[in-house]
Design a protein around this nucleic acid. Structure first.
Length: 480
RNA sequence: GCGGGCGUAGCUUAGUGGUAAAGCUCUAGCCUUCCAAGCUAGCUACGCGGGUUCGAUUCCCGCCGCCCGCUCCA
């Protein structure tokens, strides 16, 4: 089950993603920019399918969750209330000798000296000359740098502190600040949730591992508001719900894992947190965190905004600040996991060779009588194109005409691809490499009996099916 | 951010102080009755900037980017 994961390297995957148009480096013609990535024609389809599937399972198919789409820039006070502004502005210094890193304020406090502050606007902090490294004692520290992981911007034409704002580092706060608004229009009673998909921005110190840690990324977050005291049950419920979803989109259970935070690792307001992890080529890494956050966020916004934000239960007459369970997932990380999971190298027997398709052995040469293929085994519902339609030969107008009309019919319902160029085998392989689950080929028999061949990506086997039956067959296999 | 490695076409590689080669891919055409066949033609590259030099892809410096380790990870 894990073989394919051992096979794929991030380099090989990144190469395919660029070659076929899943993912490009942002601003590549200018030399690229660290931590930003663009999704090409196939990547955008894949990502949208992931988001659609999440939205279906979390919003559309449920009666107790509604959606939201908040702006990426919010009132700066939001980030004071959320704790992001204070939490991420610690001035840090590095020791050039022992490579240690320390918070400048704590380090100097220990040594009984204070930071020299320059202009307050930009926090130009200077280190006194007598400061030394607490680990090795060397007086060879870098100047303090403020590690604010939020991107700062300015509202209006004047760039000064009174107009400062931040690009949101998470989508969740847009939900909390709209809690009252949604409550008053959605006709929902607790327990109910508000879901949002959107961009978030973090000025990561060190983006790494391809798209895994990017500075601009997309989140899918749900805030599920609950009655105080029911936290543990709802938390367990959402952990299971979310794990099931990951399996449904095609991630092997064997490559998924969960990490339960110990009491000492939890934020002070949280009662539970579970990370859902995926076995990436670069290690077991987080796709989603599911946290029981109590009423921390709403209580902070109550404090900072002066609004009550309480919920009144008409049946019991109780008034309370709801608690919340927050499943928070990274779309780009999930897309990367799906790409890793799908990437498969196989050895397939040539025409005169007896044998079955088998997984390639990493580092081994292709055995004689076999040839190699790369195939992206996406779950059909996630595949960028659901079907490709081919005339067997392009220099036979009647084949071309029939193929085009089938394509025109299919593309109204699913993303599809039409290709009449080159040998049929080449066209099949090209679709294998972008994960198209079905190939539909119009041949001479089609002209006689209105059937086509339906070729399956993973097995490479073909069925003969009637043209009128195609939509039904595809629907069944795609939505499975 | 620190240390190390790397940067030639879409990909994988070759090569040179006198502006560069190949395979695969890709595009067009021919051919082709089901799995990357064949033939013909074509597009496309020395990451960016500066320096040395008559001349730099090559040597030097800076920057950017990628990979690995450390660090960080709300």
């Amino acid at each position: 089950m894990n073989m394919k994961i051992n096979q794929v390297t991030i380099d090989a995957l990144a190469s395919l993603c660029k070659r076929r148009g899943f993912i490009f480096q942002n601003s590549e013609i200018y030399g690229g920019i660290n931590g930003f990535w663009d999704y090409g024609p196939l990547g955008v389809e894949l990502k949208r399918n992931i988001k659609d599937s999440w939205w279906q399972s979390v919003v559309q198919w449920r009666d107790d969750v509604v959606g939201l789409d908040a702006a990426t820039i919010m009132h700066p006070r939001v980030w004071e209330a959320s704790g992001h502004l204070d939490g991420f502005t610690d001035p840090m210094v590095d020791c050039r000798q022992c490579k240690g890193r320390f918070r400048a304020d704590l380090l100097l406090e220990d040594q009984g000296i204070e930071l020299e502050t320059g202009s307050t606007a930009e926090k130009n902090l200077k280190l006194p000359a007598n400061a030394k490294c607490p680990t090795c004692g060397a007086r060879d520290l870098t100047e303090p740098r403020a590690f604010n992981l939020m991107f700062k911007t300015f509202i209006g034409p004047v760039a000064d502190d009174t107009s400062a704002a931040y690009l949101r580092p998470e989508t969740a706060q847009g939900i909390f600040v709209n809690f009252d608004n949604v409550l008053s229009v959605a006709r929902k009673k607790i327990p109910f949730g508000i879901a949002q998909i959107g961009k978030a921005f973090r000025n990561e110190i060190n983006p790494r591992n391809y798209t895994f840690r990017s500075r601009e990324f997309e989140q899918m977050e749900l805030e599920f508001f609950i009655k105080p005291g029911t936290d543990a049950d709802w938390h367990a419920y959402w952990v299971k719900e979310r794990l099931d979803w990951y399996e449904r989109i095609g991630l092997a259970r064997a490559n998924l894992d969960q990490y339960e935070y110990g009491k000492d690792e939890l934020a002070h307001y949280a009662s539970a947190c579970v990370d859902i992890l995926y076995r990436f080529p670069f290690g077991l890494q987080e796709l989603e965190g599911i946290a029981a956050r109590g009423n921390y966020d709403l209580s902070r916004h109550r404090e900072f905004s002066g609004k009550s934000l309480e919920y009144f239960d008409q049946e019991t007459g109780e008034r309370y600040l709801p608690h919340v369970v927050e499943p928070s997932a990274g779309v780009d990380r999930i897309a990367l996991a799906v790409l890793c999971e799908a990437y498969t190298v196989e050895w397939i027997p040539k025409e005169d060779t007896e044998g079955d398709i088998r997984p390639a052995e990493p580092g081994e040469k292709v055995p004689s009588g076999y040839e190699e293929r790369v195939v992206m085994k996406f779950a059909p519902r996630l595949a960028p194109y659901k079907a490709a339609v081919f005339p067997l030969l392009k220099n036979r107008p009647e084949l071309v005409k029939t193929a085009r009309s089938i394509y025109d019919q299919i593309k109204k319902r699913w993303p599809a691809f039409y290709d009449q160029t080159g040998a049929i085998g080449r066209r099949y392989r090209r679709q294998d490499e972008i994960g198209t689950p079905f190939g539909i080929t119009v041949d001479f028999q089609s002209l006689e009996d209105d059937t086509v061949t339906l070729r399956h990506r993973d097995s490479m086997k073909q069925d003969r099916v009637g043209i009128p039956e195609l939509p039904g067959i595809l629907a069944e296999k795609i939505d499975e």
